[in-house]
Design a binder for these strands. Structure first.
Lengths: 139, 139
DNA sequence: TAGCATCTTTGGCAAGATACTAATGATTCA
DNA sequence: TGAATCATTAGTATCTTGCCAAAGATGCTA
């Protein structure tokens, strides 16, 4: 089981939007990409997924960009992971019949532990940590 | 993050050996492969890794095969995952500098939760569950 | 000691996933 | 209208996964 770069980008993008919250001016893709050192062309696709899951909202045209759709406290890392990869920990093998039930139970316990940990971190906390770091600049 | 088929195969192979423990006769690759419905040619490679990590032992020649290297209680799911994939939850991004510290902390919390859950299940428990299922036949 | 049964090692490989790039379209605002 | 921005889709190089198979090494037994 390996954490993907995409999931990391998604969390960092949401963090950037959370740090900018609740500023009326939305953040442009290029701004987020530059701040978080994420390839803009890839970030586009990630933002779309986050939007389709209702975590962020967008506006087009001049003065367009992205903003959170809810308060940072209402968004967890688990929400972001589910938005970009379907589930915090994907286990297709749970659906297959060749795996005995007792092994499946062990997998489920691991899955639930990871999910709980992911849902236990919201972006208000993350922002608080970011702001407490003196070397971090934010707007 | 997704659980691999390989990790599942590894757990099932160790379960088969644990259910056979402490029988003096070792289990052949083909036996394990057949019981757990795992492709033998793939299982070979998995068993080698488990052996190199000291979880199982082997004997060649006639009457050869595999057996656990320690008691089922001494082997956890976490041990097996670390043997076949390096870590329960691999997070290469923790080593990269572009990811801010507060996001890394969130990743670490998820990683630790998964690790703890995986280390919390040993193969004695798994065998007990297997034996309590009436439809399960074992030797 | 010959020969067979088993594990061991190595190489290869097709299919899918990952992490992008890029082109084009759609929308908003001035 | 036209410029700025998001939205959509297609493509793609590289890596990973999940295998197969051949050849080698080792131990048992006759």
């Amino acid at each position: 089981m390996k954490a993907s770069v995409k999931s990391d980008y998604a969390c960092r993008a949401v963090e950037a939007l959370a740090l900018h919250h609740p500023n009326a001016r939305p953040l442009r893709i290029e701004e987020i990409a530059h701040r978080e050192a994420i390839p803009a062309n890839y970030l586009v696709q990630i933002l779309i997924e986050l939007k389709s899951k209702g975590l962020i909202q967008s506006r087009r045209g001049k003065a367009g960009g992205y903003a959170l759709a809810k308060a940072p406290r209402e968004i967890t890392v688990g929400d972001v992971l589910r938005a970009v990869q379907g589930d915090v920990l994907e286990m297709p093998l749970l659906l297959e019949s060749r795996c005995p039930e007792e092994i499946k139970r062990a997998w489920r316990r691991i899955k639930q532990a990871a999910e709980q940990a992911a849902d236990d971190v919201n972006f208000e906390e993350i922002c608080a940590e970011a702001k407490s770091r003196p070397e971090m600049y934010y707007i």
